[in-house]
């Protein structure tokens, strides 16, 4: 069986996989990082989004062997070492951008990538279009969009409602 070595959330792992094993299966079943979810089998829902390097990737769409040598960040690796949440996680909580929480890890990982790729900031429409690959059945997206806009402000050093709330 092929072996792959991955760095996940800063920790190196070497695992044996089948040729057909998906990255998400390694994360969930071998490494027991179950924060990354599987919501479909056609690469459409985005519940499985992780970061490889700086980019968001649907981990159900990539074979484990293709990810050999990759630096992977999952939702579990997002908070700081002291447990402080990433501004995107904070914003999702502050703006009630999650209900059942199932789409949330993928949403958060996609949203961070979206913000990083738009250093000049994002309009509401750009946020909505940027979420094309992530489905949420619970929230109606309203609060997800608000949360991402607020987190973008914090991540990009602008003053926002959230930043002000955090400073108080």
């Amino acid at each position: 069986m092929p072996q792959v070595t991955l760095t996940v959330n800063g920790q190196s792992h070497t695992v044996e996989v089948e040729a057909r094993t998906l990255l998400v299966e390694v994360l969930r079943e071998k490494l027991r990082l179950t924060g990354t979810h599987v919501g479909c089998d056609t690469s459409q829902c985005g519940a499985c989004v992780v970061h490889i390097g700086e980019d968001s990737v649907k981990s159900c769409t990539i074979l484990a062997v293709q990810a050999d040598g990759a630096e992977v960040t999952t939702i579990e690796g997002l908070a700081a070492a002291d447990g402080a949440l990433h501004p995107m996680q904070e914003a999702f909580r502050e703006y009630h951008a999650l209900q059942c929480g199932f789409c949330t890890p993928g949403m958060v990982m996609s949203a961070i990538d979206l913000v990083r790729k738009h250093p000049q900031g994002l309009s509401e429409q750009e946020i909505r279009e940027g979420l094309e690959g992530n489905i949420c059945r619970c929230t109606g997206y309203h609060n997800i969009v608000k949360a991402i806009a607020a987190a973008a402000d914090v991540m990009q050093g602008r003053t926002s409602e959230l930043a002000r709330a955090a400073a108080e």
């Binding site: 969930r28 027991r32 990082l33 179950t34 924060g35 990354t36 979810h37 599987v38 999952t74 939702i75 579990e76 997002l78 908070a79 949440l85 996680q89 999702f92 909580r93 502050e94 009630h96 999650l98 929480g101 199932f102 949330t104 890890p105 958060v108």
Partner: peptide
């Protein structure tokens, strides 16, 4: 009130059935 369940869901620590083994 901000939700108490959010912290585990936002940190990837939710325990959905398929997460159990």
């Amino acid at each position: 009130v901000r939700r108490r369940e959010d912290l585990r869901f936002l940190s990837g620590r939710g325990q959905y059935t398929d997460d159990l083994n």
